[in-house]
Amino acid sequence: MALLQDWQAIAYNRETDKNELQKFWQDYFLVEKGIYEKLLTNPNEVVKGTVKELADRYKIDVMTMTGFLDGINDSLKVPNPIETMTEDTEVNLGFDKEKLYKNMVDAKADWLYNLPEWDLIFSAEKKKALYLEQKKSGTIVKPKKIGRNDPCPCGSGKKYKYCHGRNK
């Protein structure tokens, strides 16, 4: 069984007690935050190694590393084969800075996108622009509704109700 499936079986187990699951995620988010603090200190370095080697490097177990790799995968310049990875699979943590920041905003992970390490990577204006860009990307803008007495958008000069607004 691939590591990702094992991770998902633990992290998203519906039979686990709610308090236990909440504690699991709290612990995971602290570990995740610690790894991101280290990665963002040197954002141009592409950390590489096997899943096991990276777990050892960050002093965590392989399952937690699998969860981290699952979370960061959409922000990587070259995605890892997370669906099929094992302990010996070579992976990398070469992330796209803007994509990572936006994905953290999208995940509503304020404990990550508010890390002080981001201040060394982006200016306050750039962070604000990325934040707003990500928030707007999920906003649906409905077109203005045409009123019965408005001019028809086809350009005929007639009122909408006498042109394309007629029930035929």
Rank of each mutant, 00 (worst) to 15 (best):
L39R: 02
L40E: 03
E45M: 03
V47L: 06
T50H: 06
V51S: 12
V51E: 12
E53D: 15
E53W: 14
E53F: 14
L54P: 05
L54Y: 13
A55M: 05
A55D: 09
R57S: 13
K59H: 12
I60T: 14
M63A: 07
M63T: 09
M65V: 14
G67Q: 08
I72E: 14
L76N: 04
L76C: 03
K77E: 07
N80L: 06
N80R: 14
P81E: 14
E83R: 14
M85P: 08
D88A: 08
V91L: 13
N92I: 10
G94E: 07
F95W: 13
D96K: 13
E98W: 08
E98H: 07
L100F: 12
L100E: 11
L100G: 10
K102G: 06
V105A: 11
D106R: 04
K108H: 15
K108C: 08
L112T: 06
Y113I: 05
L115Q: 06
L115A: 05
P116R: 00
P116N: 02
P116S: 04
D119A: 01
L120P: 03
A124K: 01
K126Q: 00
K127I: 00
K127E: 04
K128F: 01
K128W: 01
A129C: 04
A129Y: 06
L130N: 04
L130M: 04
L130I: 00
E133G: 02
Q134W: 01
K135N: 02
